[in-house]
Amino acid sequence: MKDQPLEYTGELKYQPQPDPKSTYLQQRLLCPYLPNEDLIEAVNLAIYLQRPLLLQGEPGCGKTLLARAIAYEFAQRWDIANYPYFPWYIKSTTRAKDGLYIYDAVGRLRDAQLVGTDSYKTYLSPQETKKLFQRLQDSYAYIRWGALGNAFREPNHRPIILIDEIDKADIDFPNDLLLELEEQRFEITEIGDTIEAQHPPIVLITSNQEKELPDAFLRRCIFYYLEFPDAEDLINIVNAHFPEQLSIELVAAAVERFIELRERATNRRDGKKVSTSELLDWIRWLQRYPPEEALEIIDNLAENLPLLGALLKNKADQNYYQRHRE
């Protein structure tokens, strides 16, 4: 691997083989990913230039799964049991520093007080006392590493970092990461040490465009907009997740109804459109039935409220779709 430059191919031979009947969500996250040539080129551009790849697109178009797919391919190609992959799922309360490390100052103060007051002699066993003094002598004992902190410390390979839904965070959050992402280092202010990336990380950042990202941040990224799959791509995605499980007629009918739902199931400007993951959940349910019965369920979807609820997550949208199907 050292003699070969990292390159993502997206080839099917490096893809995981799904269990189409599995209902275990974690296992379903390891699934075939079918990138187009432009996306593959964007990934390799980001790898070569050592720039973050910023992926935008509507929810459910496959942004989040790409980083895991790259890690899986690299693991297969170079026979690495677990290629270093560090996801960081952003929330509205997330701070930039959380992705680097969190220092347990309260724990450090507690331990120091136990020693300073000799309270450990009363409350701790000999084994606990030994661990207490070991912690106090280790400047890193009170540090909990975040996704970036762990990635920068990866000793063997270029780690893959996913910063998912960056637009959920505070508006200053992206700019707070500029130094760390560009210079690939950060300082632990509590102990005065600097952590430098041992290998340049491969960083993928996703955004649902809920907020505008700062220009200074965008200048440092490779940008790619992930278009929602068309009918042909959707059929290929379904067949990849359910290999040799479904008839051509059933897949075509399900995709046709799915596209109809996306185009006609809401009249609200901000209405949620059904996503690829919801299509796959629907297919997973339909495969429980004989093909003729599954086709009938597709035709009568508007009358099947529980199954319609797997696709349309708003009562107003369900009513709107039912009225326009009558």
Rank of each mutant, 00 (worst) to 15 (best):
M1S: 09
P5Q: 13
G10T: 02
L12P: 09
P20N: 08
P20C: 09
Y24K: 10
Y24V: 13
Q26D: 15
P32V: 05
P35T: 03
N36R: 10
N36M: 02
V43W: 01
Y48G: 00
R51H: 02
P52R: 03
C61T: 13
L65R: 15
A67E: 04
A75G: 15
Q76N: 12
N82I: 10
P84S: 05
Y85P: 09
W88F: 15
W88H: 11
W88Y: 13
Y89Q: 10
I90T: 05
T94R: 06
Y103F: 15
V106Q: 12
L109A: 15
D111N: 13
A112H: 04
T117G: 00
Y123E: 14
Y123F: 15
P126A: 14
F133W: 08
R135Y: 08
L136Y: 07
Y140N: 14
Y140D: 14
I143K: 11
I143S: 12
N156T: 13
I161L: 06
I161T: 04
I161R: 04
D167M: 05
I171A: 14
N175R: 07
L177Y: 05
L179D: 13
E180R: 02
E180M: 10
L181P: 07
Q184F: 04
F186K: 00
F186R: 00
E187C: 06
E187W: 02
T189V: 13
T189P: 00
E190R: 04
I191Q: 02
G192C: 07
D193K: 04
P201A: 07
T206C: 05
T206G: 05
E212A: 12
E212T: 06
R220G: 04
C221N: 11
F223C: 03
Y224H: 15
Y225G: 10
Y225N: 14
E227A: 13
D230F: 01
D233W: 01
I235L: 07
I235E: 15
H241N: 15
V251C: 04
V251S: 03
A252W: 00
R257F: 00
E263N: 14
N267Y: 12
R268T: 03
K272Y: 04
K273V: 05
S275L: 01
W282E: 02
I283Y: 01
Y289K: 12
E292M: 01
I298N: 02
N304C: 07
N304Q: 13
L307K: 10
L312F: 03
Q322G: 00
Q322W: 08
Q322C: 08
R323T: 09
E326L: 08
